[in-house]
Design a binder for these strands. Structure first.
Lengths: 177, 177
DNA sequence: AGACCATACCTCGATGTCGAGGTATAACAA
DNA sequence: TTGTTATACCTCGACATCGAGGTATGGTCT
């Protein structure tokens, strides 16, 4: 997820680590902050894999900074990942939102974008609950516990909103295609 | 989060690992499945910490099973964690839902339950977006990118639903107190 | 009898993440 | 001048997690 986000931000324009950190903090930091000890090793891994290059520049306001720039391989890796996100990217909301944040990078490929959205649609249409009575998903209305009922109500509202948006956006993409 | 969920399920009644696995799969597995290689070491850690004990029984249908039972320390640890969840438990939706799933275990303490809900309320009331224009959170309506606009719309729907539920439930808890 | 599946638990290496620490520079206030 | 804050990057140990593998038993189907 971090890898995807880094590649996604760098696709727009080169950034140095500190800027990247602030972008990431805005995107996911409210919910789950990422630490330096996570970010910098991740950058190094991407560099080692040849997905980005670093250019050291004299620091504008402080220490020398390393401007990060995607390579062609990095750009390709990002687009591949966006075209074919793995199951966790589709099911886990944090990861899914990261995919959404950068899906516009598949600009000229509305059909590819639609395919990704359709995978999310399929996921949301699977009958699922947090609690089961045997094999049957339990409905919000049957739950006496107010906290568990809350979970189900909130999840339902989210799913409804997302399905509405998915269907509208898919219609638009199919039209453009 | 896994620790919290294990303690939470065992608070209801003793379970063996396999049953626990199925409960966990229902709660979070749809979104993010947990593997054996995660669960069993986690159980061992909890045992080493004295939070649960294992009793080996001849297997009903197969291999001998280890029935897991919370100790008093385990029960206390669960209730402490529920009374004072850390920031990540409050901000990350997956973790927050795990807290909600077991918050009823603070049965006789409606004020403690309300305190936890109020922390989530405070978190949701902070102005936040995924994207910023300088320091100002960007609104869904300003975003041209349909995917990013979707993120903001969905997040808004979730927040609205959750705020409604939070306020209603807090009113009830305050009344009971 | 043999194949297969569900139950039930475990190990281990690879990897990712956290958090606490460290090193600098530049700007600005007390 | 000292302290503080923001910028900017890095290391390292501890730990959690994943995934792929393994070991067993008992039941069902053919």
């Amino acid at each position: 997820m971090l890898k995807l986000a880094i590649l996604g931000f760098l696709h727009d324009r080169p950034l140095h680590g500190y800027e990247l950190r602030r972008h990431l903090a805005a995107l996911t930091g409210h919910v789950r902050p990422i630490s330096d000890g996570t970010l910098y090793p991740a950058i190094k891994r991407l560099e080692a894999d040849g997905l980005l290059v670093r250019a050291t520049e004299p620091g504008a306001a402080a220490a020398p900074r390393h401007t990060l720039r995607l390579t062609d391989a990095g750009r390709a890796a990002l687009l591949d990942r966006l075209r074919a996100p793995d199951e966790l990217d589709v099911s886990d909301e944090n990861r899914w939102f990261t995919v959404l944040a950068f899906l516009r990078h598949l600009d000229g490929e509305p059909a590819a974008q639609a395919t990704v959205l359709r995978r999310r649609l399929a996921f949301l249409n699977e009958p699922a609950s947090f609690f089961y009575d045997g094999d049957r998903p339990v409905d919000a209305e049957e739950v006496a516990d107010p906290f568990r009922r809350g979970m189900l109500l909130i999840a339902r509202a989210t799913t409804t909103a997302e399905l509405d948006w998915l269907r509208a956006t898919l219609a638009e993409l199919d039209h453009r295609d």
